[in-house]
Design a protein around this nucleic acid. Structure first.
Lengths: 231, 231
DNA sequence: TAAAAATGATAGTATTACTTTCAGCGAAAT
DNA sequence: ATTTCGCTGAAAGTAATACTATCATTTTTA
């Protein structure tokens, strides 16, 4: 099952609350493993039912389809990240420290929590890295967004915006910066593993992102203006 | 058909060169329209055959599957971007100007070329924004990468790295920065349209990215170090 | 004009993505 | 103690997807 934290995820994500039953919890845990194994495209409820010793029909009682299940899993991850960030920032006052700790929380999302033996957090993070964007890069983003399916991601961004704003209240792109940091974190991990020429060897993703954010927010006048020469 | 530019895309992308025949060229043009219409998940060769007045079997002679077709289309886009960047940077010497023009080329990828009436470039860019990452976020990235399917994207990054390096030869993350700029450009367009709370209202993506890159590369010492306080 | 290449027509297979119905079982309420 | 409820499993079915194969016909080209 999913670890200790049990956020109230949007009820449109599921048909029946998977956290409420044994089968539901095993569904969640095993789906992460299976997604990690074979990827979202090859993943089916039939295969999942097989490893669970259950049936397709039973699983369809929890989730309308695998897309919703994916979005559920990603939402859970985002909720968990929010929690981690909140804890990491607790009692840290210095704005620069706050950014630092937030980025540590975001980038160390893959570390396994030994308190949850039957839930593979490292596998979830691999699934997040490889599949998260498929949760919203679909033709029904707008419909899904309308019913709140991306609430957790948007909340995570909303939580981080003040962290960034604190360093430079005049910065005009704090939402864009935050979403770029989150998306880039995933991408750079993926690239490092699979398309290394799209990153730099031995890159510390957190250090890269922290430098990026701090320098953007330091915003010395010399960085800001677009060049004035003719096009 | 695809516009004037005819790059030599990796031959593993297709079974039969679609640029070499009339049906092949119509396949490419219509697939963009159909992908834009219904999205990658709902897209099938059967539906495409229908709008082409052709048959499934005929289309499967060009592409092994829709994944390869998508990667072909994205590769064509990346090759075209490379070309646009090259043209934009021609005879521009000032490093800051070069970055500026490169980003203009990248961010204005959606403008339609009136020279190619039967090819909808705006539609291709929408498809790129929504679907490009699905070309590599799969379980067979590594196999596909090995046979060169992502050559164009990697080349685009490789072309842009010197542009960035010229502004700061000591910068340690130029590959990560370039790939972040490219990925972020797509993401921010998508967010602006579908998940606006993940960007800032009225954001000029190019201006955002240019400020981000310039400030990261300006790298005053005050931005660089991680904070020294206890964790 | 003959050979080669490309296309269309037809058909077929395995799998996917579901839905439906019904029966059985354990826990909770009466 | 039994009814009832919620959940699961079993079985079957459907439409669509993702292909592959064969063969006749048309188009290109040498």
């Amino acid at each position: 099952m999913l670890p200790t934290l049990r956020p109230d995820l949007n009820e449109h994500l599921y048909l029946r609350d998977p956290q409420g039953t044994d089968l539901g919890r095993r569904l969640l845990a095993e789906s992460v493993r299976l997604l990690d194994d074979i990827g979202f495209e090859a993943f089916t409820f039939k295969k999942l039912a097989l490893v669970l010793g259950s049936t397709e029909a039973s699983l369809y009682r929890y989730f309308e389809n695998k897309q919703r299940l994916l979005t559920y899993l990603m939402s859970w991850h985002w909720a968990w990240l929010r929690f981690r960030v909140r804890v990491a920032l607790h009692n840290v006052a210095d704005p620069r420290q706050r950014l630092h700790h937030a980025l540590v929380a975001i980038c160390q999302a893959s570390v396994d929590d030994p308190a949850t033996p039957d839930f593979d957090e490292a596998a979830l993070y691999r699934v997040v890295v490889a599949e998260a964007s498929k949760a919203y890069l679909t033709k029904d983003v707008d419909a899904n967004n309308r019913v709140g399916l991306f609430r957790e991601y948007k909340q995570l961004v909303a939580d981080l915006v003040p962290v960034v704003q604190a360093l430079n209240p005049a910065y005009a792109h704090s939402h864009a910066l935050v979403s770029t940091l989150l998306e880039s974190a995933r991408n750079q991990y993926f690239f490092a593993k699979h398309l290394p020429s799209l990153t730099d060897p031995g890159t510390d993703v957190r250090a890269f992102l922290e430098h990026l954010a701090l320098s953007a927010l330091a915003a010395p006048a010399s960085c800001t203006p677009a060049p004035a020469v003719a096009s």
